[in-house]
Design a protein around this nucleic acid. Structure first.
Lengths: 142, 142
DNA sequence: ACAGAGTAGCGAAGTAATTCGCTTGTGCAA
DNA sequence: TTGCACAAGCGAATTACTTCGCTACTCTGT
């Protein structure tokens, strides 16, 4: 009769993960210093957060070191994929295309950015073409 | 000493908004039926949610009708922009380009999708080119 | 070995989000 | 007009998320 735990990292959790992705293994103090620049939270809070995240399996820790060091349990790429996949489902009815079109038209993208994106598209296109040639060859062979 | 209210619509709020975007003005009962297909929540819950969302300003209601009808206070486009802009900040260090590149490589996109995206890029490119020609002309004129 | 400084853990408090039971109000049909 | 069925509102319960204060522990330097 209540709220289900979020499937994605929460606000503060994400800030902590970002620090860990950026800096690698870090002590609670280091994480705290990074956080503290934005928010003026107490050191205890950071420690507690890390403890909670450890229980959730979001971070790992090296207890042999003193002070302990923490690392993100999941990579940035994977987390991004997860979050995006949920966003696409919940906000774009599962259409990645819609999302991309919308982001491209509403967010600023430099010419260089656009070029880079175009390049990736060419490449993906190439892969698709190769794949369909392969399928055709297989059909002929059957 | 606690949690700030989320700046974005929450899980359930989003489901409700989606129904409203899709169907336009709807009664609590209609919203509930739509929700109930996924989750087996009580009708009271839906009514309460709509009341909370009304207080937050997420939905508007026409009290002259009986039963009342609700509409989303903000459009789908706007909500998408808001959410995406936050995601880009929090997860991609503000780089829309990174997000697009990542979504394109990790999500399935058909050839037709890619074509459509390519077209948009051409168009944006064209606008940029026109804009820079204009700036150059202005410089010459100064 | 001892004091001072920083580290780790615990439990509790406070807000947000979700859920519902129960009461009250409204419109329609017999 | 009376009763039935559904609509709307209220307050409370429950869980998740954040934040701390306080206690106990571990190093390090003297």
């Amino acid at each position: 009769m209540a709220r289900p735990a979020s499937t994605q990292p929460t606000e503060v959790e994400l800030r902590i993960l970002r620090k860990l992705w950026e800096s690698g293994p870090s002590t609670a103090r280091e994480v705290h210093n990074a956080l503290n620049e934005d928010k003026g939270t107490n050191y205890s809070t950071t420690v507690k957060m890390l403890a909670v995240m450890f229980e959730k399996g979001l971070v790992e820790r090296d207890e042999s070191a003193f002070p302990m060091t923490f690392t993100a349990a999941t990579g940035q790429e994977e987390t991004r994929r997860n979050v995006m996949s949920e966003v696409i489902q919940k906000l774009y009815d599962g259409s990645a295309k819609s999302l991309v079109l919308q982001v491209l038209s509403s967010q600023e993208a430099s010419k260089a950015d656009l070029d880079e994106i175009r390049q990736l598209i060419e490449q993906l296109d190439g892969q698709k073409a190769a794949a369909s040639r392969k399928r055709a060859a297989k059909r002929r062979g059957t």
